[in-house]
Simulated assay, not measured.
Amino acid sequence: MHAERSSEPIVEWLASAGVAASVFRYPVLTRHPAPLLAIREAIRETRSTGVETVGVMGFSAGGHAAGLAAYAPDGERDEVPDFVALAYPPVSMELGTHGASRVNLLGEDADPALRAATSLDRLVAPEAPPTFLWHTGGDTVVPVEHAYLLASALARAGVPHETHIFERGNHALSLARDAGTASAWTALCLSWLQSHGWAP
């Protein structure tokens, strides 16, 4: 399903900060590589309108889809985002945790090679785009170990990245308003965007 709280409200927040954004509803309940191909096509179409810098932001399973668009090795230059921001994504398709994402994307009996080929931490290369990542230690749906796997992979590859782990907070916080320290993620993300020249 698409989470409405992680679509238009996010666009409104970015617009209020002077960042042009739109919602892309990638196909759900479809097998890999359909979501990846759809996101790549959307990035190509956006670039074809004259937009020079394209970033992708995704939440939960959408974070995994956005991460695939950023890190999958066979993307053409015009279909890979310039930066990516990921919120509490299921990173590994090899872990036993959050198996629902794996089953929806890969099926019940996905072989080890396919699971590895769709695990974000396995795909990170030095040329991967700069990444902003946040998660909460209290997430019981997608445990925080997923974020640590990706952050470690980014560090090993030397990819510019910023990672924030907040002690408390459930899954699917979206803008995380009134969610304790996790509510700081929007200001931190905006500051990161500004530091790279992607936000005014």
Rank of each mutant, 00 (worst) to 15 (best):
S191M: 00
G197I: 11
P160G: 04
L68M: 12
P129F: 06
Y148D: 01
H161Y: 12
A15W: 10
S60C: 15
L123V: 03
T140V: 13
A184S: 07
E4F: 03
A65N: 03
N170D: 12
H161M: 04
A155S: 13
G63C: 02
S60T: 03
T131C: 12
N104E: 00
T46A: 14
T118W: 09
A70V: 03
G75S: 15
G58C: 01
I10P: 02
R156M: 12
L14G: 10
L188K: 05
T163F: 15
P160N: 00
L133H: 05
I165L: 14
G169F: 15
G197E: 04
E108Y: 06
A17E: 09
A157D: 09
F59H: 10
P126D: 09
A61D: 02
P160R: 06
E145C: 03
P200C: 08
L150N: 08
S92W: 08
P143N: 07
V11Q: 01
V103H: 04
E76D: 14
V124T: 09
T131W: 03
H161C: 08
R44Y: 06
A128Q: 05
R177C: 00
A3K: 03
T46P: 13
L175D: 02
N170T: 10
R77G: 02
A147P: 02
E162C: 01
A176G: 05
V144S: 10
W192G: 01
V142T: 12
A20C: 06
A42Y: 02
T53I: 14
E4K: 12
A38G: 10
E41P: 00
R77F: 09
L29T: 09
L106R: 06
P112D: 08
T49H: 15
H146C: 03
T131D: 03
G55F: 04
L106G: 09
H146Y: 08
H98I: 07
A187R: 13
A21T: 04
L95I: 08
I43F: 08
F83I: 00
R168L: 13
E162D: 08
G99N: 04
S191F: 04
S48H: 11
D82Y: 05
L106M: 11
G18H: 07
W192A: 02
H135F: 06
L86F: 09
L37P: 00
A65F: 08
G137F: 12
G50W: 15
G62P: 09
A100F: 01
L14A: 09
G169S: 14
A182I: 10
F24I: 08
G18T: 02
V142D: 02
A157S: 15
G158I: 05
R77Y: 01
G67H: 03
W192F: 02
S119T: 10
G138I: 09
